[in-house]
Computed example of a mutant assay.
Amino acid sequence: MKKSPTLVDVAKLANTSKATAARVFSRSKSANVRLETKARILEAADKLGYSPNLSAASLRSKKTYLIALCIHDITNPSSPSLIRGIQDELAQHGYDLVVFNSDWDPNKEKKNLLAVVRNQLDGLILQDPSDELDVLELPDIPSVILTSNEVFSAVRSTVSTDTVGGVKKALTYLHSMGHDRIGILLGGSVSQITNRKRAYLDFYEGAGLKVEERLIVDVPFKTRASDTFIMAKELIVDLMRSPRRPSAIFASNDMLGLAALQMAQIEGLEVPGDLSVVGMDDLFSAESASPALTSVSKHRFEVGTQAAKNLLNQIHSDSSAVKEVVNELVECTLVIRDSSGPITKHGA
């Protein structure tokens, strides 16, 4: 029977020490090995067919090297960028990601958190906690919350995007293009709708413009993004067919913005000649739409990366030290594309 390759065999073939080879296969120490040396060791392991016993390593270190990400909807178009940002950063430090989906259900959210504790995961990244979740129900493990909710940011580290500032950037841009009758499509969680509507009303007040309630459209929340898209199209048609339709629409997410583009085409409206449309999220589908959708980027990949870095700092810090609460705010950026422009006589 052929003898299984050992770590000593790998080190010998890679022309390095056993200790260095061991660090490469140690999740917590692999980052301390030079890239060229690491590549040589991994190549040797692959050639020999060597596979480290990660379960044994986890038992010795009392770590699972698994991080939980609890999100609302993995099918939401903005989720992949967030997940990729987290996963890429964790992978550099030997950690894997486990994703829990709550479907916006507070009961599922709580069950997911219990599963995190039950499986002894090393850390938690939690997206926008529901109103029903109490701070005291959070697991007592290193964690980062993706929220601007002050109740959570007072006791746990957070990473959030300045969506209020992003909304105002979009509205300021549209107003500078001559638009003063701007419709807004609101969708998402209660907190998201509240924040974006407040930003819209504050902008109108600051600009000295009259608020028309019929230009504010609340798109009913649906658990699945695809269902929300269908519902949104019906409401957008009503807005476009109104006697004094808006010359521009700001959608609180790109999915609603893309729905507005689609319905404008069906209604025979030219974009941006008859109607300017701006979304929020800056998804790949926004850039590839026709016309390409102007959008407010929330930098989801960067948010994920920053959340993972913050979490890893907590995990690797002295366990006896007092944990510092760090609240980080990522600014939004307006990405101007073909779906928006100056108001025209036809669009006025």
Rank of each mutant, 00 (worst) to 15 (best):
L113S: 03
T64P: 11
K111I: 07
Q314L: 04
T37C: 04
Y200T: 04
S143I: 00
D218T: 00
D73M: 04
R244P: 01
T20S: 14
S340W: 04
Q120V: 07
P139R: 01
S297W: 05
G85S: 12
A321Y: 10
I315F: 05
K298T: 15
S148T: 09
L215G: 02
E36S: 11
R34H: 09
A207C: 07
S81K: 08
A44S: 13
I193E: 11
L261G: 00
L311I: 01
S320T: 15
S247W: 07
S288N: 06
N76S: 14
S317V: 02
K345P: 04
L239S: 06
S78A: 14
D88V: 07
R241V: 03
V164E: 14
L269F: 14
Y173H: 15
H72S: 11
I83T: 14
V164A: 15
D180L: 01
T16S: 09
L239K: 00
V303F: 06
P291R: 00
T147N: 08
E287V: 11
N76L: 02
V296M: 04
A259K: 09
D318V: 05
A115V: 10
L209Q: 02
K3W: 07
S297Y: 11
A225G: 03
G279P: 09
Y65A: 02
V278K: 04
T75S: 15
K62H: 15
A199L: 05
E150R: 08
G178F: 03
L186R: 05
I125L: 03
D162Y: 08
S130V: 06
D318P: 07
S226T: 13
N32G: 03
G187F: 00
S58K: 02
L138N: 07
E270G: 15
D282M: 08
R84T: 13
A225F: 12
D274P: 06
D140S: 03
G94P: 11
A289K: 02
L185S: 10
L261M: 01
R40V: 01
T6F: 00
K197H: 05
